[in-house]
């Protein structure tokens, strides 16, 4: 329900300085972020790049090397499995919780809300280290299960935070009308709520996947050899420069970048960019 925006007529000859500022800022962003991304892509395809404005020649051998040296297929499978599992479990647990928080009042609601917000307000390292220690005790650290468990900690609150306002804006009268007309609660759920909630749930799923893909700390603290995700593999590759040619690290970065950007494009079809960050409601 956006408020209709009507502009006051800009006086003739008056320059919209605000808009110029906006475009200048966008230009700087495009230059810096674009420059970083383009130089990564160019370097990944470069035979070598010493001193010149452009690489000396182009090749795809760094990608072939990355597939064997980094065991890229294994990393991609592990990444897909972990992010999808985090999103699926996060939604399964988070959607009912968000629905109840949107529709019901109960005595400990405030406490529950704070509890579900806290993991988003603390740096992942603060709870990640004790959590990883605990997972080691349960022999879960180093496994995909351990990584999924750790990533759920911020993912679940994110789902609840994104979907509670979404459920709030679905008119309860629709569900009531269905009930009055004789629909069973199950039917109300499948025929009324699910279709109405689907866009929001899809958006939340995409946001959780995009965030889980980029979230470094928790996976870094809990992953082992066969549960390393792309972002952690990239960190390890970049952490030891000199061991590998920069082109090979950049090839890895290109794979990660392409995955993220494809997901982002998918997400932007369904998600308003301002929802990509958490909004804390007063």
């Amino acid at each position: 329900m956006s408020v209709a925006v009507r502009r006051l007529p800009v006086r003739r000859g008056e320059i919209d300085r605000g808009a110029i500022f906006v475009y200048a800022a966008v230009a700087v962003l495009v230059l810096v972020v674009g420059g970083i991304l383009v130089s990564v892509v160019l370097d990944a395809f470069a035979t070598s790049w010493f001193g010149g404005w452009l690489p000396d020649g182009f090749t795809d051998r760094w990608f072939r090397a990355a597939i064997t040296d980094f065991d890229l297929p294994q990393i991609l499978v592990a990444t897909a499995f972990i992010t999808l599992a985090v999103a699926a479990i996060g939604l399964l647990v988070g959607v009912p919780a968000a629905y109840v928080l949107a529709r019901r009042r109960f005595r400990v609601k405030g406490v529950v809300q704070v509890l579900l917000l806290l993991p988003l307000l603390l740096p992942p390292i603060t709870y990640g280290i004790p959590l990883a220690t605990m997972l080691y005790e349960f022999r879960l650290a180093g496994t995909a299960a351990g990584v999924i468990v750790a990533n759920l900690v911020p993912a679940l609150p994110l789902v609840v935070l994104l979907l509670t306002p979404f459920f709030e804006q679905i008119d309860p009268n629709l569900e009531r009308a269905a009930r009055v007309l004789g629909a069973s609660p199950l039917r109300v759920f499948t025929r009324v709520l699910v279709p109405l909630a689907a866009p929001g749930v899809l958006a939340a799923a995409l946001i959780v996947i995009v965030r889980a893909l980029a979230l470094f700390e928790l996976t870094f603290l809990t992953s082992g050899a066969d549960s390393t995700t792309l972002v952690v593999a990239l960190y390890y590759a970049a952490f030891a420069p000199g061991i590998r040619p920069s082109q090979q690290i950049d090839a890895m970065a290109v794979v990660y970048m392409a995955t993220s950007l494809v997901l982002l494009l998918a997400a932007l079809r369904f998600v308003n960019p301002t929802n990509m960050v958490v909004r804390v409601r007063r």
């Binding site: 972020v33 420059g35 970083i36 991304l37 130089s39 990564v40 370097d43 995009v210 893909l213 980029a214 979230l215 470094f216 972002v231 990239l234 960190y235 970049a238 420069p241 920069s246 690290i249 950049d250 970065a253 990660y256 970048m257 993220s260 950007l261 997901l263 982002l264 990509m276």
Partner: peptide, 14 residues
Amino acid sequence: TLGTVLIAEGMLQF
């Protein structure tokens, strides 16, 4: 979307 690791890694070249 790209996250801190990629930005930092990309800065090494740029």
